[in-house]
């Protein structure tokens, strides 16, 4: 049952991401990781036998926990990715701020 819910949730989630991209609320660049995430969950849920095997092999005795673990690891990676994006944007904004100040100074001195 949990696998069927996972698949439905993942499909709805992917549709939502596609909807956001279509409406330009989300950059395609950031949608890719989310779509991969959705596909991963679906694949794991469909191959739940595989999931069971892998789970036992790595010492997880409740197979769906492997599903959650996968999702959790993915979320951490994605959050770090967002921190990197934020750092770059912060840097760019600071440089823009400085350049604007310098241009303004030049303009004011011309008058």
């Amino acid at each position: 049952m949990i696998y069927i819910i996972s698949i439905i949730a993942a499909v709805l989630f992917m549709l939502f991401i596609i909807f956001l991209v279509r409406n330009k609320k989300l950059n395609e660049k950031y949608s890719i990781l989310w779509l991969i995430f959705g596909i991963m969950i679906i694949l794991l849920a469909i191959n739940y036998k595989l999931l069971d095997v892998v789970a036992v092999k790595i010492g997880i005795y409740y197979a769906p926990a492997l599903l959650f673990l996968t999702g959790f690891i993915f979320l951490i990676i994605y959050t770090v990715h967002l921190s990197i994006v934020a750092t770059k944007q912060n840097k760019d904004i600071i440089r823009l701020n400085q350049e604007i100040a310098i241009i303004n100074e030049k303009l004011e001195n011309k008058d």
Partner: peptide, 8 residues
């Protein structure tokens, strides 16, 4: 005078 548009 350089006037930064917002605090850095």
């Amino acid at each position: 005078v350089l006037n930064l548009p917002f605090n850095l």
